[in-house]
Deep mutational scan, measured.
Amino acid sequence: NNDALSPAIRRLLAEHNLDASAIKGTGVGGRLTREDVEKWLAKA
């Protein structure tokens, strides 16, 4: 759900042209964290 994304995470996803639904969030309530996105980028 994009409503649950912080502005910083939205920007990070946009910079790398990523789809938030492709990344499993580990934050509160399954929210994406910066670490989630960075780990996903490291694997890609």
Rank of each mutant, 00 (worst) to 15 (best):
N1G: 13
N1W: 10
N1D: 14
N2F: 07
N2V: 13
N2T: 12
N2Q: 14
D3E: 11
D3G: 10
A4W: 15
A4L: 13
A4K: 10
L5M: 10
L5I: 12
L5R: 03
S6A: 08
P7A: 15
P7I: 11
P7S: 08
A8H: 10
A8Q: 09
A8K: 05
A8P: 05
I9F: 04
I9G: 00
R10Y: 08
R11D: 15
R11G: 10
L12I: 07
L13V: 03
L13G: 00
L13Y: 01
L13W: 02
A14K: 11
A14M: 09
A14V: 05
A14R: 12
A14N: 07
E15S: 08
E15H: 12
E15Q: 14
E15R: 11
H16W: 09
H16P: 00
N17Q: 09
N17P: 02
N17W: 05
N17E: 06
N17T: 05
N17G: 15
N17A: 07
L18W: 06
L18H: 03
L18F: 08
A20I: 10
A20P: 14
A20F: 06
S21G: 11
S21R: 10
S21Y: 06
A22S: 10
A22Y: 09
A22P: 03
A22D: 13
A22W: 15
I23C: 04
K24R: 11
K24S: 10
K24D: 07
K24H: 10
G25K: 03
G25A: 08
G25V: 03
T26R: 02
T26K: 03
G27V: 02
G27Y: 02
G27I: 02
V28T: 11
V28N: 09
G29K: 04
G30A: 04
G30W: 01
G30I: 01
G30D: 05
R31Y: 07
R31N: 09
L32E: 00
L32W: 05
T33D: 01
T33V: 05
T33P: 00
T33E: 04
E35D: 11
E35W: 09
E35Y: 07
D36P: 00
V37S: 00
E38Q: 09
E38I: 13
K39A: 14
W40G: 03
W40N: 03
L41T: 02
A42Q: 12
A42T: 11
K43I: 14
K43H: 13
K43Q: 15
A44I: 13
A44F: 15
A44T: 12
A44M: 14
A44H: 15
